[in-house]
Amino acid sequence: MSIVFSFMLGFFAPIYGGIFYGIDRVLKAKMQRRKGPPVLQPFYDMLKLFSKTKFIVNAPHTIWMIFYFLSLWAVVFMIFFGGNLLYIIFGHLLATVFFIISGYSVNSIFSQLGSNRKLLSVVAYEPILIVNAICIYLVFGTFEISEILAAPNNFNSLVFTFLSLLFVVPTVLKLSPFDASKAHQEIVGGIEVEFGGVFYELVYAAKFLEMIFVYSFIFILASNDYIFGTFLVVFSFFAVALVDNSTARIKIDSLLKALYMYGFGLGIVSIFWILLCCI
C-alpha cells in the first residue's frame, strides 16, 4: 500500500508540484496587492506549451536537458521512497550537472553565462546541503529519510540547520536575491533561454521538482511531527516568497560570499549546537 502510495507521489510529482508553483505565484501576487494568475496557471501553461511548434537548437542540448529532468524525477522518487539523504543530494548534483552541460552545449552567450553562474551557485550550496545532512545524521543517527520520519521530533537541535537551509532554498529555486543564475531581466533566464515549446515545459516542470526536493529537506527536520513539518514548509514557503518579492538580485560573487558566510556558517554553528548543547 505504502509503496504504491510513494510511487504515486513520485510519479505525479511534476503534476501536483505545479499546484505549489501556482500557489507560489498567487502568493507573490497577493503580496504585491495584485490579483495574480489562477492557481491552475502552471497547468494552462503546460497545455499551451504542448500545443506549440517544436523548435530545437541542437540535439545534444535537448538530450542533456531531458536527462536533467529524468534524473531530477528519479531523485524525487528516491525522496518519496525514503532513500538516503546523501544519495539524494548527490543525485541532485548529477541532475544539475546535466542541466549545466546542456547550457554549455549551445552557442548562446546567455545560456553559457547561465551555466557558469549555475555552476558557481552549485559550489555555493552543495557544501551547505552536505553539512546539513550531517547535522540531521547527528540528531537522528541515520541518513535514511524513512527512518528520520519515524524518529521522535527533535527540532530544538535543528534550529540552525533550518536557518541554514533557508539560504539554500532560494538558491536552488533561483529566487531573489540568489537568482543570479537565472536573472530573467539580465541574461534572459540563463540556461532556460534556448528551450521552447514542449521542451521548455520540461524545464518548467523541473522547477516543481526542484521545489519538492528542497522543501522535503525542510519537512524532514520535524521528523515524525508531520503537522509541524507542514508548518515549517509553509513558513519557509512564505518567508522565501516574501524575500523574493522584497529584495533585489545580488551578483554571483556576492552570492558565493553570502552563502559561504551565512549559509555555511550557520551549518557549522548547527554542528556545534548539536554536539555541544543538545547531546
Partner: peptide
C-alpha cells in the same frame, strides 16, 4: 542515436 532530424532547427537567441 537521437538527432531530432524531424524537428525544426532554430538559431540561438541573441
Amino acid at each position: 542515436v537521437f538527432k531530432f532530424n524531424n524537428l525544426q532547427k532554430i538559431s540561438v537567441y541573441a
